[in-house]
Design a protein around this nucleic acid. Sequence first.
DNA 1: ATGGTTGTTGAACAA
Length: 254
Amino acid sequence: MKIASWNVNSLKVRMPHLEEWLALAKPDIVALQEIKMETKAFPAEALRALGYEAVASGQKTYNGVALLARTAPTDTVVDIPGFADEQRRVLAATVGDLRIVDLYVVNGQEVGSDKYRYKLDWLAAVADWLRDEIAKHPKLVVLGDFNIAPDDRDVHDPEAWHEQVLCSTPERAALKRMLDLGLHDSFRLKDDTPGQFSWWDYRQAAFRRNLGLRIDLVLVSEALRASVQSAGIDRVPRTWERPSDHAPVWVESG
DNA sequence: ATGGTTGTTGAACAA
């Protein structure tokens, strides 16, 4: 069972890349972020033709998440319980015996900004929700664009990024509160080396110079931890023409 | 140098 996450930064632009990558990587479940389209525009039929059933929660211009699986996802939730939010950033569903939660975490723009405060409030609400989800569904996978680099191994230049957004102590503490529910960063179960990134800025030839951050994560619950065979980051689509700024990340379990 | 690139929408915003 291969489970992946990819921030595609516009599914309209990146649909050819998604199709190519599905054929290459053959994932069983894929969480997408930043589809940047309304739900009604989501290409469900094209994906079905490729062997994937899909659910989406989109909006005009920004955000938007979707979940693809070999069998139809059920029991879909698109709102954080008790947290009013017009932004379409979460999608939870059941696939087989797994509960999947796809997150497009708020970016936060700059430490101390209104958007940063929204990010921390949003993360707290999601953690509260996940506490209930993991109690109901022990086999839980939480994956997506977390917009947080878990620690300095995940940052190309920790000094430059020190206490900057995506790396600040309150953001990392919010992520730790999530992990403390009994979730594990699958990549770090298999690889403790620094310099393994999932996002590179479009500017300054950042990908070519590997000036990136690891901000896309696949978290697995304790019940799934021992089943993780391998985990990784697929840099290949980032080399393609007109790429997303994020690479797909994945875990193989079972 | 508060820069630079990309995407959506149509000059500004978000990342």
